[in-house]
């Protein structure tokens, strides 16, 4: 059984960009990569609860607008500050 939810039309997101998508009380960030594929992550930064969709997408990375925390939106991996751990 599939539970598809329509987020937006493909032309509502530019290439290498992100939009915010709220659904059933949750917030997501939806990305369009430079190679024209679509991805989604949790909408809020892990540092403080800031909407990542206001941040900057460069290649595979979304940077949080608040303090530049960096995440790979394809893998979900944190790519540096602000939350140090190994």
């Amino acid at each position: 059984m599939s539970n598809w939810v329509e987020v937006c039309a493909t032309d509502e997101i530019d290439e290498e960009d992100v939009i915010r998508f709220d659904h059933e009380g949750k917030t997501f960030a939806v990305y369009r990569s430079p190679d024209d594929r679509f991805f989604a992550t949790d909408g809020l930064c892990t540092h403080e609860k800031i909407h990542l969709a206001d941040g900057l997408v460069m290649d595979d990375i979304i940077e949080c607008p608040k303090h530049n925390g960096r995440f790979n939106y394809k893998t979900g991996e944190a790519k540096g500050a602000p939350s140090a751990s190994t």
Binding site: I50, H51, D54, G55, L56, E63, P65, K66, N68
Partner: peptide, 11 residues
């Protein structure tokens, strides 16, 4: 207000 200028400052 909020993160209005964040992306452009980063650029």
């Amino acid at each position: 207000i909020g993160n209005a200028i964040a992306r452009d400052i980063r650029l």
